[in-house]
């Protein structure tokens, strides 16, 4: 049995699911952002695997775009975390009920 596309897809799915669980169970906003990065990485694994399998570079170009978007998202998300911790003295998502109702 040799290394196939299925192995990568299963690994990608497992890591994505771990990221989803992290977003749900953690209350720290920064760790939630890190779980989102984990999910983006899982998608990158699937894209690279498909790109190699299809003999087509488009998948790897998409990975390049995803990395750029993830960097932008991290910058804005962390800026939000800084502002919220300045106002509320915490980054616990249970404390952010400003727009809840």
């Amino acid at each position: 049995m040799s290394l196939g596309l299925a192995h990568f897809l299963v690994l990608s799915g497992v890591i994505f699911a771990i990221g989803v669980i992290g977003v749900i169970i953690r209350r720290n906003a920064i760790i939630i952002l890190m779980s989102i990065e984990l999910m983006l990485n899982a998608v990158n694994i699937a894209l690279v695997a498909f790109s190699v399998y299809m003999r087509n570079m488009d998948g790897q170009v998409f990975v390049f775009f995803i990395i750029t978007v993830a960097a932008a998202e991290a910058a804005v998300g962390l800026a939000l975390a800084v502002v919220i911790s300045r106002n509320r003295k915490s980054v616990d998502v249970d404390d952010f009920n400003l727009m809840k109702w």
């Binding site: 192995h7 690994l11 497992v14 890591i15 771990i18 990221g19 669980i21 992290g22 169970i25 953690r26 760790i31 890190m34 779980s35 984990l38």
Partner: peptide, 12 residues
């Protein structure tokens, strides 16, 4: 893959 899954579980 095992290292990766183990590390991801540690992250969360």
């Amino acid at each position: 893959a095992i290292l990766c899954i183990f590390g991801s579980i540690l992250v969360i």
